[in-house]
Simulated assay, not measured.
Amino acid sequence: MNSLFAQLTLADVHQDVARNIVSLRESQDLFDDLTDDPAEWLLAQKVEDEVKPPPYRSRMPIIDRPFEDADWFNAIVWPFKHWQANRFSDGSYGVWYGSESVETTVYESAYHWYRGLLSDAGFDRQIVIAERKVYWVACQAALLDFRNAAEEHPDLLHPSDYVFCQSVGTRIHREGHPGILTPSVRRPQGENVAIFNAAVLSNPRHNCQLTYRLEGRQIVVEKQPGAAWITLDVANFL
Rank of each mutant, 00 (worst) to 15 (best):
E108M: 10
E108L: 05
S109L: 11
A110V: 07
Y111E: 00
H112P: 00
W113M: 05
Y114L: 01
R115K: 14
L117C: 05
S119H: 13
A121D: 10
D124S: 15
R125F: 15
Q126V: 07
I127P: 02
V128R: 11
A130T: 05
R132G: 02
K133I: 13
K133V: 14
Y135E: 03
Y135A: 01
W136V: 04
V137A: 06
A138R: 15
C139Y: 07
Q140K: 14
A141T: 09
D145V: 12
E151L: 12
H153R: 05
L156F: 03
S160E: 12
Q166C: 03
S167K: 11
S167F: 10
S167H: 12
V168P: 02
T170A: 15
I172H: 04
E175A: 14
G176F: 00
G176A: 04
H177Y: 15
H177L: 06
P178N: 00
L181M: 09
P183V: 11
R186F: 02
Q189G: 01
Q189D: 13
E191G: 02
E191M: 13
N192C: 15
A194R: 03
A194P: 01
F196G: 10
A198S: 14
A198I: 06
A199Y: 13
N203H: 13
R205T: 02
N207A: 13
L210H: 01
L210P: 03
L210A: 08
T211A: 07
Y212T: 00
Y212R: 04
E215P: 01
G216S: 02
Q218I: 01
I219Q: 02
